[in-house]
């Protein structure tokens, strides 16, 4: 069995914890593709369109810790996780999102129980409304409360987050 799951991300380690929680709930014979999606309104000036590069944009957004965290998860779920990629969604309409979901063959969406994204970029936007209308099955993962911890923002944050999975 193969699944493609869409998980919203703000490029924080906390959002990787959702991935971790989601993966830990899956049965071991499922092959999973994870797409970490970030909503970002694009500047539509001619120069930024001319020099648009998604790769560079993602490089700017992803911190070193985030990338390391991704590979930690990839190594942990090496046999289950087929692919894991970060992507940017910059559509404005629901139809655009539906197209994106269809094109990437999304089977499922996983969102945190309490989704409070902390965006670094002011052009980022919350994808949750699109998810709700899309009609795709939505799973929730993560914890209700946000416990303050010393390792916030470090790769260490990924390691201790024993939270219940609903």
């Amino acid at each position: 069995m193969e699944k493609t799951v869409l998980i919203p991300t703000d490029f924080s380690i906390a959002s990787l914890n959702i991935v971790k929680n989601y993966l830990s709930m899956q049965s071991s014979n499922t092959r999973i593709n994870v797409i970490l999606l970030h909503g970002l309104h694009q500047n539509d000036s001619i120069t930024s369109l001319l020099f648009y590069s998604k790769r560079r944009l993602l490089e700017d957004l992803c911190s070193k810790e985030f990338r390391e965290g991704c590979t930690v998860l990839k190594n942990k779920y090496a046999s289950q996780l087929r692919t894991m990629k970060t992507d940017i969604f910059s559509g404005l309409t629901q139809a655009a999102f539906d197209q994106y979901a269809e094109a990437n063959a999304i089977t499922e969406i996983c969102v945190p129980i309490s989704y409070k994204p902390n965006f670094k970029n002011k052009n980022s936007f919350n994808l949750l409304p699109y998810f709700k209308v899309s009609g795709l099955p939505i799973e929730t993962a993560g914890s209700e409360t946000d416990i303050p911890m010393p390792e916030k923002g470090k790769v260490a944050e990924l390691f201790f987050n024993r939270v219940s999975v609903s």
Binding site: E68, C70, T71, E151
Partner: peptide
Amino acid sequence: VNVSIGASDQNVFIIVKDHGIG
């Protein structure tokens, strides 16, 4: 005391977490 291990493609992470005085 929680001791955890993980590895990315470049690094091995060892994380030691306590609930002490800080």
